[in-house]
């Protein structure tokens, strides 16, 4: 009897002591609800709603993690959010369909992909919020993008061109195109910036890129319609929109490591600071699935507002 009680109590104790260590927030772009939902991951619930129209989709955080930049493809603008105050402080109009977004970790410069065109907007933080300082030509329908940790290169997944553009940030010009699988959408860089991973929506695989060598070095099969990759504990995790799964693979051997059932239309995925927990935005189910990166088990589910996409860097 005492044994049977002991185990759950043990887990409860672990959970309770773990909460302060893991306490983190997620900023979930709820595209259909028209807001950014603030989720306390320790409490596993939405604790604030930041209203934002224009179908918010992509999100990126400033290097100091105090500001979020959110794309509004239907509002043709990028919103600036003060994360401590939990409010929108500014918005900059940009043409086309702003969707993918990232921040240079060195300079804080913001890069926004125009889904309808073949260009990336360069936006600089300014007293009024953001101002546009340039435009870079890339491949067709740029989507996911990221700047290497050294601030030298911007990598852009060109969805309709089946390629990744490498932009030399010193000259702000595309220096190379790397061929990848069909319709790359999300693009994720390893922490050291040596590898990049694209989720190829229509070839149902992930392209692994050697960033220094500027070439694809491997392919990993996924479920149907992969969206974006997250990295944790030596593994890659990719959301499969049509399979309602997350496919895990080894980063060293590029071999499948398991398939995790999540909810309807999983999209954005990110690893928590501790590298042990992953959060997946289920667009269809209006929830976040919590995944243990070690056991590959779903350990929880958090309800969020309608149409969560969380495309980008959505945890802090």
């Amino acid at each position: 009897m005492s044994h049977r009680l002991g185990l759950p109590l043990f887990f409860l104790t672990v959970l309770l002591t773990a909460v302060p260590t893991f306490a983190q927030e997620a900023y979930v772009t709820a595209q259909l609800a028209g807001e950014v939902a603030v989720v306390d991951l320790g409490q596993a619930k939405v604790i604030a709603h930041i209203p934002l129209d224009g179908a918010p989709a992509g999100i990126a955080l400033s290097p100091d993690r105090r500001t979020a930049y959110v794309t509004r493809p239907e509002g043709q603008s990028v919103a600036v959010l003060d994360l401590d105050a939990r409010k929108v402080t500014a918005s900059l109009a940009v043409p086309g369909g702003p969707l993918g977004i990232c921040v240079d970790p060195q300079t804080g410069t913001v890069y926004v992909a125009d889904w309808y065109a073949s260009r990336v907007f360069v936006l600089a933080p300014a007293p009024e919020g953001l101002k546009q300082t340039g435009e870079i030509a890339v491949g067709k329908s740029p989507s996911g993008l990221a700047v290497t940790p050294d601030g030298r290169s911007l990598l852009v997944a060109n969805r309709e061109a089946d390629s990744v553009s490498v932009v030399d940030l010193a000259t702000a010009r595309e220096s190379q195109k790397i061929a990848v699988g069909q319709h790359p959408f999300g693009l994720t860089l390893s922490a050291d910036g040596r590898r990049a991973y694209t989720a190829n929506v229509t070839s149902n695989d992930v392209s692994v890129i050697d960033v220094a060598a500027r070439r694809e070095i491997g392919r990993v099969k996924t479920g149907d319609r992969p969206y974006v990759v997250a990295l944790a504990g030596g593994r890659g995790f990719v959301t499969d929109q049509y399979s309602n799964t997350v496919t895990a693979f080894g980063l060293d051997d590029l071999k499948p490591a398991g398939t995790i059932d999540v909810e309807d239309h999983p999209e954005g995925i990110a690893a928590a600071k501790d590298g042990k927990t992953l959060y997946v935005a289920n667009w269809g189910d209006n929830s976040l699935s919590v995944i243990d990166a070690g056991t590959l088990k779903v350990t929880g589910k958090i309800a969020v507002p309608d149409g969560p996409r969380a495309f980008g860097d959505f945890l802090r």
Binding site: Q31, A55, G97, L99, W115, S141, G307
Partner: peptide
Amino acid sequence: AQAQHAPTRRK
């Protein structure tokens, strides 16, 4: 010649 779909999925 166009992006394959619009930026906002409907439900």
